[in-house]
Design a protein around this nucleic acid. Structure first.
Lengths: 193, 193
DNA sequence: GTCTATATTTCGATAGAC
DNA sequence: GTCTATCGAAATATAGAC
């Protein structure tokens, strides 16, 4: 992620992201993070008041990445939204490829993520990405079949992109991504023609 | 799930499945399970030697459900496998719809699931479903694009099926499932024609 | 900014009575 | 088959020296 993680704070986030993806948020202790980092637990508390805050910071970073592509839909009507969706999905795919670990964190720890956001504030910030897609898929102004297919297109690209490294043997990542994009395109094209 | 969960063992599994899906496996304590059940922690230990064993039992049940549809692929060659895949996926969708909570457990706790299976035996039993799909998607005898599209088809149906209840407003579940099936069908049909 | 040392809590698991 | 009582381990978090 960070090429030269100068600050300790940044190194904590890098190591935490690694361990959270390997073992899960709950099973990862601050002791483990500190050990892999070469510091003590107490040092972590200088940079983050609570364990949750480390997770939250990583979550917000992913959140900002995912929100970017969605801004293209701002102020669009139903038909325009449907028409713009393929490009939004393409931009989203780019973000996922470039920041796979961050999106992996979200997928593999959605329980921890949901519970932390429930217990606390951050409702407003969460309403950017996740809640926005939710509103889109629940919008009765768009035909149901079209909305279902938009949801399907997300799942279609996520599985190959987020799956294990050797999911397709030693296949080229770009080639796989290309096929996944094409498949998602087919989902979205069909009911419009 | 169980209409009349006569045995305590069965009631434990039902309550545990509920809580694991609500809060995650790690964040759910035996104390919570016992309380919601109206018994004490110690009672749970009469039925299950360890907390992991509760999770494992639920996992194996889902596993058996998912393995069923895959048996149709037994002894088939590459072309036949590709040809049979749409029907396998349809059967899989039926299982997911009929046992949504069990598959949700797997999706929301894949970290816990992976770690528990790593720590222990059960490799042989796990090689039924998950490993079988893995082998299928890594099989060089099937064209890469075809394999990617098979993976996409799984993601395409899972997102609408496993998403939150109100994902598409108050839309009819069967209608949603129908559209999702159609979308998956389009993914699989395209590159063959 | 990082350390040592410790407080506090909670959890999984066990022993033994009933 | 369920209970009371408790153990031991591990976790988050804090206090205060350097």
């Amino acid at each position: 992620m960070s090429a030269s993680p100068t600050s300790t704070r940044e190194r904590i986030l890098d190591v935490a992201l690694e361990l959270f993806n390997e073992q899960g948020y709950d099973k990862t202790s601050l002791r483990q993070i500190a050990e892999r980092l070469g510091v003590t637990k107490a040092a972590l508390y200088y940079h983050f008041a609570r364990k949750e805050d480390i997770f939250l910071e990583l979550h917000l970073r992913m959140h900002r990445l995912g929100s970017g592509p969605l801004e293209e839909l701002d102020g669009l009507g139903p038909d325009e939204t449907v028409a713009a969706w393929p490009r939004v999905l393409d931009a989203f795919v780019e973000q996922v490829i470039a920041n796979r670990d961050l999106f992996l964190l979200h997928q593999r720890n959605e329980n921890a993520f949901k519970q932390i956001l429930d217990d606390e504030r951050h409702r407003a910030e969460n309403e950017d990405m996740e809640e926005r897609v939710r509103a889109l898929l629940a919008d009765p102004a768009i035909p149901l079949e079209q909305r279902v297919r938009m949801a399907c297109s997300i799942g279609a690209v996520l599985i190959p992109l987020m799956g294990a490294r050797g999911m397709f043997g030693d296949a080229d990542h770009d080639e796989v991504a290309g096929y996944a994009r094409a498949a998602a395109g087919d989902i979205l094209r069909r009911p419009r023609q």
